[in-house]
Amino acid sequence: MQERQAACRIQVMPMAPAFTEAAQALASALGLPCGSSTGPSDGEFALQLGPAGLQLQQLGAEAPGPVWVDFLQGGAAHRRQFGGGSGQMIAKAAGLQPGVRPYVLDATAGLGQDAFVLATLGCRVEMIERQPIIAQLLRDGLERARGDAQVGSIVARMRLHQGNAIELLRAWQDEPPQVVYLDPMFPHRDKSALVKKEMRLFRPLVGDDLDAPALLEAALALATHRVTVKRPRKAPPIAGVAPSLTLEGKSSRYDIYPKKSLKA
């Protein structure tokens, strides 16, 4: 992972002189160079630290806008208020039903959107993210949300682990999760599919999750009740055990591997 970060030439940048010390500490923790708030960046990406928090910005004339984690406003807030509650596909796929709010481990957390939906609906959610920069963006978003009167109680149900999900699942020592949720990066062949700026930014950092079969195997060994895998609608299932149930939407679907019924 460090090699991929180095190949992408990422630099931590304070957005004002007041954030220089914090940016230097973050750069040291991530093993990245630290730039100046007044000087240009010579990297392809800038991890920018400022008064609004931490954001990742791809550099260049045609680069998309920055990506950051915000559970208080924007899409997360809209979905929390108007997203359809437990009627959402992800809720059904994770096994939510009246009186049932399973303990979930999201082993491919990314920016935490799916985990936040499940936590909003009352689930306790463990999250694993192996890419250090993405994990840092998620950690920053969680910390900024903790003090909010409405959202603080939601993110209190979310706990982040940074590391290789396969290794962490195999060595899991805490209470086993009832549901393991996976949304591995799918190896797209059509560049037109990369429409979201998050995807455009993250694919050079993360690459494709070619170890998804091993991740599914580890998830099936750990989950007590079910494993749920989010996939592009037309993508094949992850190699290995075939799913017993599929929920299909317009652009994505959920492959479900049940082990035991979830009951109140």
Rank of each mutant, 00 (worst) to 15 (best):
C8A: 13
W68E: 07
I256P: 12
D70E: 11
G87N: 12
V117E: 11
Y254R: 12
V227Y: 09
F202G: 06
R4C: 01
A109I: 01
I90Y: 09
E129P: 01
E175S: 10
A214P: 05
A239E: 13
S86H: 07
R144T: 01
L121S: 03
T120I: 01
E129M: 02
D140Q: 05
A156M: 03
L222D: 04
D114A: 07
F186Y: 15
Q97A: 15
F71K: 10
V117T: 10
W68Y: 14
E44P: 01
L118N: 09
A93V: 09
I133L: 13
V69F: 08
I128L: 08
K196V: 02
E143P: 00
W172Q: 12
G141A: 06
L26C: 04
M199F: 04
L210G: 07
E44S: 13
R79Q: 05
S244L: 11
K250C: 12
R159V: 02
L142V: 02
R146V: 00
R231Y: 06
K191E: 14
T224V: 02
R226Q: 14
Q97P: 03
T224R: 12
M127H: 02
Q97L: 11
M185Q: 06
I238M: 07
G31K: 08
G35A: 12
P236R: 13
Q178E: 15
G35F: 09
P64L: 11
M158L: 14
P213K: 14
P33S: 12
Q73T: 11
F19L: 04
A221P: 01
F202V: 08
G99E: 06
F19M: 07
Q131F: 00
A7Y: 00
D190G: 09
S261N: 11
G152T: 00
F45Y: 14
V69K: 12
H161C: 00
E198K: 11
G95A: 10
A149M: 09
D114M: 03
V12S: 04
G87Q: 14
R139C: 06
A223C: 03
R139Q: 14
Q2A: 04
G240D: 08
S86I: 12
L182M: 11
A135F: 00
T224N: 10
Q136H: 00
P204Y: 13
A23Q: 03
H188E: 15
A156S: 14
M13D: 01
L142A: 07
A145H: 02
G35H: 12
Q24N: 02
H188V: 15
G152I: 01
T224L: 07
P204M: 14
D70F: 08
E248Q: 15
S41T: 11
V155R: 09
E21P: 00
Q150V: 00
G53V: 02
G110H: 05
A29N: 06
V104T: 09
K263V: 07
M158D: 06
N164D: 15
A115Q: 06
F45E: 05
D209G: 08
C34K: 04
M13C: 07
V227I: 06
E175P: 00
Q162S: 10
G95V: 03
Q173K: 15
N164K: 04
R144P: 00
V151W: 01
P176I: 08
Q97F: 03
R130V: 00
S37C: 11
T246N: 05
H78Q: 10
P40F: 07
D140K: 04
M199L: 12
V125L: 06
P14Y: 03
L160C: 02
A242C: 05
Q2Y: 01
P232F: 10
G122L: 03
A7C: 02
A119D: 04
A221N: 10
S244A: 15
E126Q: 14
M158A: 08
